[in-house]
Nucleic acid binder design. Sequence first.
DNA 1: AATATGAATTATGAATGCATTTTCATCAGC
DNA 2: GCTGATGAAAATGCATTCATAATTCATATT
Lengths: 228, 228
Amino acid sequence: MTTALSTPTPFRRKSLHAELTDAIRNQIVNGDLAPGIRVPEKDLCTFYGVSRTPLREALKVLATEGLLSLEPNRGAWVSRITPEDLDEVFPVMGALEALSGELACKHISDAEIGHIRVLHRQMLKHYEKRELAKYFEVNQQIHEAILNAARNETLATQYRSLAARVRRARYVANMTQERWAQATDEHEQIMDCLETRDGERLSYVLKLHLENKLETVRQWLQDNHDPA
Amino acid sequence: MTTALSTPTPFRRKSLHAELTDAIRNQIVNGDLAPGIRVPEKDLCTFYGVSRTPLREALKVLATEGLLSLEPNRGAWVSRITPEDLDEVFPVMGALEALSGELACKHISDAEIGHIRVLHRQMLKHYEKRELAKYFEVNQQIHEAILNAARNETLATQYRSLAARVRRARYVANMTQERWAQATDEHEQIMDCLETRDGERLSYVLKLHLENKLETVRQWLQDNHDPA
DNA sequence: AATATGAATTATGAATGCATTTTCATCAGC
DNA sequence: GCTGATGAAAATGCATTCATAATTCATATT
């Protein structure tokens, strides 16, 4: 009874609202749509060449993700990032990241550790050349790989949702040389923990790593805060 | 400059899609819409007497919350609760609840502790009379009060979202006398931690409490699992 | 009888249109 | 000059309509 087609591999095109959600989310996360600005439906409709119906569905989703705030009859704004937001979000991310470290050490394969090792070396090279953007890029890939190793989609989804909210700040946060060196050192420890599969310590290091990152982002926000 | 009206309290009627979201969420969480069943748009439209546009917006939101699953061109289903789901969700809830305990002990006021003490006594009475539904009700209020004491809306939102997903199971989970006694004892400890503001221990107890709850729910799921 | 095929039915995806609310420019009154 | 009123313009909320994909059911074929 086994044929070449015995394994079902359904392929379905994403619906428009889903694609819009992803596209607009990217626009927000990479700062293309700046925090605080209004987002009239009409503008996005003409930009994407779609009607209001699927667009509005996307806006509702992004609002529940915390990237937009909607006011009835008044439309959508890109959520602002206040210092209070950071103080709220980072502890939660810390708890989730700690859990991800713990679980990752339980489930991670040798191949995955190897892959992260490769990413780690790439990141170090970007650090030496002071290529901030590329550093961030690889950095994010490492954290993503750890998250995947935790084998918990619920955890990953929740974490990514929060990360998206603060990543907008992280992108522009210019680290001091000192902080950058420290972060790199912390990543060295993270690598160690993974290779020895020391979940408890990884949990601790990741949380610390994030707390230090909070300081960086908070600093940036103080320097660049826009008047309400 | 502080007047009676210094705190802005904008007064806006919720929009229809928001009310629908809440209403349908309740239907799902309290089991009125059972896990696994199809949810045709038309049925909900006639039930609520609304058109498809706001309804569909609500469905998108509930899908991002994990209560529904949507398949393009095929419609919506109430998410099933599998043992794998529980194994994913509970650890994440555990991490969040641990954090909430830690934060609550930092911020909770004497009045709030007093209020929780009142709820605690109520719960004990329901336990003695073996009133399961009322016990659950007050139980939930206690956890909600702790969550509020943590003073972190982000945390609260994330936690509630996960709690909603498993509450459907919790409602029907019939506890053994043994487990019930144990849970009550754990709540005694929770109360102690709050009154001594021992965040570290509360964190630990809440996590343990949740792990035990997982066992109960998992047991129920084994007994009542419906065939896919 | 069992399976496969294709038309009819039904459901969802997306665009359009109308009603209501906000916004904003203009102007009257103090 | 500032406050508040008025009406036009614009934006949002929701219903309806059209398009397209999925499902169902009758029919044909083996």
